[in-house]
Amino acid sequence: MIWTLILLSLMAVIMIVATIVAIRQKDLLIAVFATAAISLGLSVFYFLLQAPDVALTEAAIGVALTTVIFLITIRNTKRYEKVNKAGQCKE
């Protein structure tokens, strides 16, 4: 029980930090990897909440395929989000 709690808290901290990084980061590559970290934490959550089927799906689709599709998009468009402090576009 106590180990479950520790693992759950660790994953919750990782997911919250990764969400903040994914939203605030100007470099979209880092934001996409933060999204992958959210999926990884979510997979552990599903496993601890007794849903192994969903954990397997999340690990296969959320961590691998979604990240790759985002990376292909970034390769074909732009890598840096060019906005100023107020949120206005600079290009």
Binding site: A31, T35, T73, V83, G87
Partner: peptide, 11 residues
């Protein structure tokens, strides 16, 4: 709040 399309899809 974001103005950048890739960021919106990430959200």
């Amino acid at each position: 709040t974001k103005k950048y399309l890739t960021k919106i899809v990430i959200g």
